[in-house]
Design a protein around this nucleic acid. Structure first.
Lengths: 145, 145
DNA sequence: AATCCTAAGTTAGCATGCTAAGTTATGAGG
DNA sequence: CCTCATAACTTAGCATGCTAACTTAGGATT
């Protein structure tokens, strides 16, 4: 058999994303991508499109289109940054806040249940994942210098 | 801060996939999605589109289009299954075999380097990932009954 | 043999990722 | 002051994920 780590990680996340997407669409009429974007603005306070792109791990054009869609849906407020520069200041509308608040725990709980069922130690796996992400960040930063 | 596991996993994989994609496009003129499909046919011997869809963690229509593209590029051979049924029998062309053979180790090595650099124990993380994927498989199987 | 069931595959159309190339706002150097 | 550099953002167009609905092939039911 011998499926390697990169493949397993890729497939695991593809499936988790699809599950999350189905639940959100069925129960809350929003896609997982849109939900993630709102969460990062709401919970982490990412307030420019550039920061949001980094947070989501996607490119600026992707975020540019996404913020347009979310603004059109009335979930996100997009304004020129009063501090100047060619920036947008992002914030949630009341409707956006409601969605994030009501769903914040739901997925983490579902994933925690899967992890528990599998016997994998949650804290350790979460820590490893966070450390890999931090290392990747760091390597990307270094390579741009 | 407090970014949860599902978000970190999603972002980690999004970035790894993008890195892999860039390397493959630049050095070998093929996308990561296409490479993964060829790998699963070549290394795991997945020989129907349905099996390939499960292996990749995507849906049948996605695979249907992908096999069409790969066949058009001369990397994959797609034939009606001689055993009958509405099936296709998938196999690599010589050109497809070459690509898989020459790149099989490359990504795993690069990922292993990242993991080593981060200090995360490779074997343990790989085992946890594999176990989560197996558990997810099992839960999906059970829910279809 | 005619009808129906199921599994596999396809088609149509949308959502969202990407790259490449252009635009805009600000600040720095001459 | 004018020009240039840089960072953030946008636009255009393609690749590939999805769902919904359809088609096809074989086997089961009567």
């Amino acid at each position: 058999m011998e499926r390697d780590l990169s493949l397993n990680l890729h497939v695991l996340v593809a499936r988790l994303d699809r599950m999350a997407d189905r639940i959100l669409r069925a129960e809350h009429n929003i896609s997982y991508s849109r939900f993630l974007a709102l969460t990062l603005v709401g919970e982490l306070g990412l307030s420019t499109q550039r920061a949001l792109a980094d947070g989501l791990g996607v490119t600026e054009p992707s975020v540019s289109r996404m913020t347009g869609v979310l603004a059109a849906e009335g979930l996100l407020d997009v304004q020129p940054d009063p501090a100047g520069g060619n920036r947008r200041q992002l914030s949630l509308t009341d409707k956006g806040k409601e969605i994030v608040a009501s769903l914040r725990q739901e997925f983490e709980d579902k994933l925690a249940a899967l992890v528990a069922h599998s016997g994998v130690p949650y804290a350790e796996f979460a820590q490893h994942t966070a450390r890999l992400l931090a290392t990747l960040d760091q390597m990307e930063q270094e390579s741009t210098r």
